[in-house]
Simulated assay, not measured.
Amino acid sequence: MDTQPPRGGLLTHDVVVMQQITSFLANDFDILDTDGAVIGRFSGQDSVGKRFFTGPREFTLFDSDGTPLLDVHDVPNFGFDTFELTAPGGAPVATVKKKLSFIRRVIDVTAGDGTRLELRGGFWDFNYEILGGGSPVAQVSRQWAGMAHGFFGRSRYAVSLSPALGPHHRLMILGTVVALDLIRMKDERNSSS
Rank of each mutant, 00 (worst) to 15 (best):
A179P: 07
A138N: 11
D181G: 15
G166Y: 10
L174Q: 03
T176S: 12
L180M: 14
H169S: 07
S141G: 01
A138G: 10
Q143E: 14
R170K: 13
M172H: 00
L165K: 05
A164T: 13
A179Y: 10
A145C: 10
S135F: 02
S160N: 14
L180T: 11
L180R: 15
L161C: 09
A158S: 07
A164M: 02
L165M: 06
L161V: 08
M147F: 07
P136V: 12
R142V: 02
L174H: 01
Q143M: 13
I173N: 01
A179S: 14
Q139C: 00
S155R: 15
A138W: 08
L182C: 06
D181P: 10
Q139S: 11
R156D: 00
G150E: 11
L171H: 03
G153S: 13
P163M: 05
A158N: 06
H169K: 07
S141A: 00
H169A: 06
W144Y: 15
H168P: 11
L182F: 08
S162M: 03
G150D: 10
F152I: 07
R156E: 02
V140D: 04
A138S: 12
V137K: 06
G153T: 13
H149P: 04
P163D: 11
V159A: 04
S160L: 00
S162V: 03
H168Y: 14
A158G: 01
G146M: 06
V159R: 09
V177P: 01
P136Y: 10
S162D: 12
L171M: 03
S160D: 15
D181E: 11
Q139D: 05
V177E: 04
G175E: 10
S162Q: 09
V137M: 04
V177H: 05
G153L: 08
L182V: 02
A158Q: 12
S135W: 02
D181N: 15
A158L: 01
Q143A: 08
R170E: 01
P136M: 11
H168L: 08
F152M: 11
S160R: 15
S160W: 11
S135R: 13
R142T: 08
L182H: 13
P163Y: 13
V140G: 03
F152R: 15
P136K: 14
